[in-house]
Design a protein around this nucleic acid. Structure first.
Lengths: 196, 196, 196, 196
DNA sequence: AATGAATGAGTATTCATTCAT
DNA sequence: AATGAATGAATACTCATTCAT
């Protein structure tokens, strides 16, 4: 007697999730190119065949990770947007970004590595582009927040803010143990997230 | 007729330089992993055998590039140090960094990509470490400049400055055509490179 | 209420037939090696498991096709044998063969492809042999027809006839749209299927 | 000291020829799809890498075989064309074709197998087409010979001849030990290659 | 000093078949 | 009788490196 449809669906979801998680860990540890499918399926505890039942290939695993990342970014922005004042919104962005990097510097490192892929890379540059576009979209929202703050040149200010924030993220993931994240967080908040 | 000694040495140096230049171009275009030795020697116009006479392998070519980069960094810092006032020194660092990225975003991108290599990467993480150490050393010098500027907490201030500067570099190389480098340069200079 | 015995058997037969038909279509379209079990069961609208309930594997599906083909050949020969005169019998063979190829050139092509399988092929050469043996058996019957026609060297004549006929079949399936089947049919009939 | 250019060229040619020969033997034995590159290079006694230095892949090896075959066909036709009378020309075609198949039935079998590839096959149908086109071209020349013979409807006659000839080739390669090639050769010559 | 022919370990992907439910 | 999730052996191809000349 066959399994019910729901049963199968459940099994499928569990297996997919399992594989995706394993892939993320391996990718983050070794990098996309160095990660072998063998490593991934061994870590997931499944056969190679199963992996290919669920994902069209190595690239699709990466695609899932990128989608995940974009959703994370969007979520932080939506949480921020839901807050009352522009200054609260910007503070949320700062905290969301810095805490995230602080907690999993290797994850942020992975995506930054992806973003800095050589433009000519056949496979990866596509995903670095997707990420950059997602970030550009969020940037527009952020500009609105600065406008709401009453900043004269909101766009430039927003850009200066982003530069500072991303610089901090870069440095946290580069020196995760030495960088004084909290102090820096205070500084950036004081500089950018206060109304007059 | 002799003088072969010097003559040979000269030929060697020219050939090495030639190969290194070709390797740099290929690496920057395609990235280290995607760049093939075949491409490098074809671009350099030499045989594979000759390349292996001069360099122990692909990795050593990368090592040369990293050394080059470190020297560039050191040079900017030395030029800065030679200037009269701390504010002039910091301005020089800003200009050196931003102009360099603006001019060759792909080159900076390459080194940032290298720096964000997964920690477990057998080959490359070594070089990301070397780069990071060199930058840490330069950071100490920079702290001295902020101290000279009379900043209260020079170390923190220097870190905040570096965060902002590296964030700008990251954004220039990500959006080379849209980022308003000059405006941002003014802002960072105004914020950090002026005595009271 | 019972009768399950016959009912079940009927269901089995329908399902088997369904799978076999789907397999034939896929095999003929893509060739045996290129046809995947996945394609077959998808076309048949059943699960992989069911297919393996009915057939031991891919190879058995092919075996069924070969059996089918042999029965087709036998049938044409039996129809021919039932006719009154040897000349009518041979005409029937000609028409049966050429019309069959003309109608489904891809089917004939498939079997010819199978017949020309490399001898060392582990799986398929077995079936090419089976087909050849069946055809050899029919050849004997055909020799009797030529004998009945009063041909001096019936065996050689029969062989010459077969060569011509199979050559035509080959050419029809190679150039299905250009080959003038009817004209050729007339010629071969005139040459071989007329008593003095 | 490097080898001279000619020396290298010689080495290359020998290696290529060696690999091509091995590939032909393996392909003919096992068929294209079943032949593994491992088998080919093992038979040739070279490394896989070398094989890929000389040929872009498995498919290119097949391409060479097809080219070879076409040249063989062209050569027989040219030899025939050089002869004095149309009847001599046609006799030459008959002998060239039948002797060739008789001598290496497996080789002819391989090409016939290739020609009968399913039309949808991604890789092979291309080559079956190339072969068919080459043969169609030769057919035109052959029509001219029949015209020279004074045949009324040269084109149809030529087609009937080709059908018979190819049928014989098919049967020789199917029953290489039983088919009375010489007797059949006489018959086809008598039927088609004699002026009145 | 210089060449390029030769190597072979490493890897993503396919697909017939099995088996728990 | 029926399902489809799971398996893993098989295979084409890449590329840094070696070495005979």
């Amino acid at each position: 007697m066959p399994r019910t449809q729901e049963e199968n669906e459940r099994i499928r979801q569990v297996a997919k999730e399992n594989i995706r998680t394993a892939a993320m860990e391996i990718f983050i540890e070794r990098g996309y190119h160095d990660a072998s499918i063998d490593d991934v399926v061994k870590k997931a505890g499944v056969s190679k065949g199963l992996m290919y039942n669920y994902y069209r290939g190595k690239e699709e695993l990466l695609e899932e990770m990128v989608q995940n990342r974009i959703e994370e970014i969007i979520q932080v922005m939506q949480e921020a947007s839901a807050l009352g004042s522009p200054s609260e919104q910007l503070k949320h962005i700062v905290k969301g970004a810095l805490d995230n990097v602080k907690q999993r510097p290797d994850v942020y490192r992975f995506y930054l590595h992806l973003q800095t892929q050589p433009k000519e890379d056949k496979v990866l540059s596509k995903y670095s582009q997707i990420l950059n576009e997602a970030m550009a979209k969020q940037f527009e929202v952020q500009c609105g927040m600065f406008a709401g703050l009453g900043t004269a040149n909101a766009r430039l200010r927003s850009l200066y803010f982003s530069s500072t924030l991303h610089g901090m993220m870069l440095m946290i993931c580069t020196y995760p143990d030495q960088y004084p994240t909290e102090e820096m967080k205070e500084q950036i908040i004081q500089q950018f997230c206060t109304d007059r």
